[in-house]
Structure formats: C-alpha cells, structure tokens
C-alpha cells in the first residue's frame, strides 16, 4: 500500500503548488478543455458537411472521441510525468536519489509522477461518452464491463510507452525528440483504426497497439466482442508492457550517473 499512499501525497502536493498560481491553474484547466473540445467540434463540422466516417455514425464517433479523451486524461494523471521526472533527473545526474530509496525504482517514479491536469479531460470525456451512450441507447451489459477493462488496458499501454521513452532517456540522456515523435504517432489513435489502410491497421493493432487507445474500447462498447477478439486487443499490450519493464531494467544497468 505504500505506493498508492505516496501517489496520494504527491497528488496533494502538486495540487497545492498549482493553487499557488490560481489564474494559471484555471487557465490550464480551460486550455485542457478547449484542447479536447477541438476533436468533437471537428467531428461536428465533418458530419455537418459530409456523410462522415464510414462505419461510424455521429454519436458513435462522439463516443469514440470521448473514450480517447478519457484515456488521454488518465495518461496525463498517471503516466506522462514519469518521462519528465526521469528526463530531468538524468540530465542533472540526479536519478541516483531515486535509485537509492528502498523502493522499486519504477513503481516509485510512477507514484511520484501523478498529475492533476488530466482531471478536466476525464470529466469532459465522461460527459461525451455518457451523452453518446444515452443517444445510442447502449444497454447495460457485459460490454460496459469489457469497455472499462479495455480502458485500463489502454492505460497500461500508455504507461508502457512512457516507460520505454524514459528508459531511452536514461541511456541517451536527452530524449525529447523520441517523446515528440511518439506524440505524432499518437495522432493515429485520434480516428478509428478502420479509416486507415490495412498496413497501418496491422501496425497499430499488433506491432504498436495504438488502436487500444480508443478504437477497441469504443468498438467493444458499441458492438461487443469475442474471446478471440479480446485476446487480440489485450495480448499485444501485455507484450508491450513486459518489453517496457525489461527495457527499464536494462537502462538502469547502463546508467552512468554522469548527467548531460
């Protein structure tokens, strides 16, 4: 239980820090909401002028967008700052202070990397998903449970990615470019996987399972899935998670403490 306790304490500290600049705090929340409203607004404009995205009605696409926003919010809350914490610590040669503590280094860094900034996104995403689900008359069924499982899987995938990039930081010292490149890759998840060609679909389903970051949870909530389908969605993420932890351990063995 020590890690959740640590995460709670850090969450409270970061929130108090943010409150020190109240106007900035409000502006950050508003910027997050404005940023996340862009996707649904663009969807409204697309559907107002065209037949929309094949296989997705307007409400279904809103549900997709809401799901993506929730996952991004959760990622902001839990995973993103592990990269920044590691990146800064490595640059100044301070990572040792984390490694010397009597904790598992990865879990410790994950615990102290919690961030409140995703809360506004989670609220907005939940509102969008709820609105679309009501409009689409989605019944109470096992699909809702599977939807939450897949959202959790998506969070595991995103955490794995940031762990991998952080491991890269430990080895390469400066690694912002890789993070920026990943942000661009992440844009593939902003639209349903079926709009892309089969090659891209294969990559974002099996090799770099970005489709878990919205397409799979939304599709499962809307249409359900099979055991085989579920395995196809979850197993690549588990593989990715194992690889990221292996990369983390490898990078720590290579850590020089020299800064840069």
């Amino acid at each position: 239980m020590k890690y959740p306790k640590l995460a709670r304490a850090m969450f409270a500290i970061r929130l108090s820090n943010a409150f020190a600049y109240k106007a900035n705090f409000i502006a950050i929340c508003l910027a997050k909401i404005i940023g996340d409203l862009v996707g649904p607004l663009v969807a409204i404009f697309i559907y107002a002028n065209t037949q929309g995205i094949p296989g997705w009605s307007f409400e279904q696409f809103l549900l997709f967008q809401g799901t993506f926003i929730i996952i991004m919010g959760l990622t902001t809350n839990i995973a993103i700052d592990i990269f920044w914490n590691v990146h800064i610590a490595v640059e100044f040669g301070n990572l040792d202070k984390y490694l010397l503590k009597p904790y598992n280094s990865w879990l410790y860094l994950l615990s102290i990397s919690v961030n409140w900034e995703g809360l506004a996104e989670i609220l907005l995403g939940t509102a969008l998903v709820t609105y679309s689900a009501i409009k689409l008359n989605i019944p109470l069924s096992i699909n809702i449970f599977l939807y939450f499982i897949l959202i959790f899987t998506a969070l595991v995938f995103m955490t794995s990615i940031y762990t991998l990039i952080s491991a890269g930081s430990i080895i390469a010292v400066k690694n912002e470019a890789l993070n920026n490149l990943f942000q661009r890759f992440l844009d593939f998840a902003r639209y349903p996987a079926d709009v892309y060609g089969t090659g891209v679909q294969f990559v974002i389903t099996f090799l770099f399972p970005l489709a878990i970051s919205a397409t799979f949870p939304a599709q499962t909530l809307l249409h359900g899935t099979t055991i085989k389908g579920l395995a196809t969605m979850i197993l690549p993420t588990i593989a990715f998670f194992i690889i990221s932890l292996a990369a983390w351990s490898y990078s720590l063995r290579k850590y020089s403490s020299a800064g840069g």
């Binding site: 697309i46 995205i53 094949p54 920026n180 490149l181 844009d187 639209y191 709009v195 060609g197």
Partner: peptide
C-alpha cells in the same frame, strides 16, 4: 529531425481520414 520525420505521419493520417470520408460521401 523528429518534426520532419513526423510530418509524413500527420499527412498520412489526414490522407486516409479524408480519403474514407470522400469515398463514403
């Protein structure tokens, strides 16, 4: 380098998105 490498990626996304919308419409 990352920005230049990422540019074709962003364009690929818009390309496929609008290709499917134009075909569907």
């Amino acid at each position: 380098v990352a920005a230049v490498a990422a540019t074709p990626l962003a364009l690929v996304i818009y390309y496929y998105l609008w290709k499917s919308i134009y075909a569907h419409t």
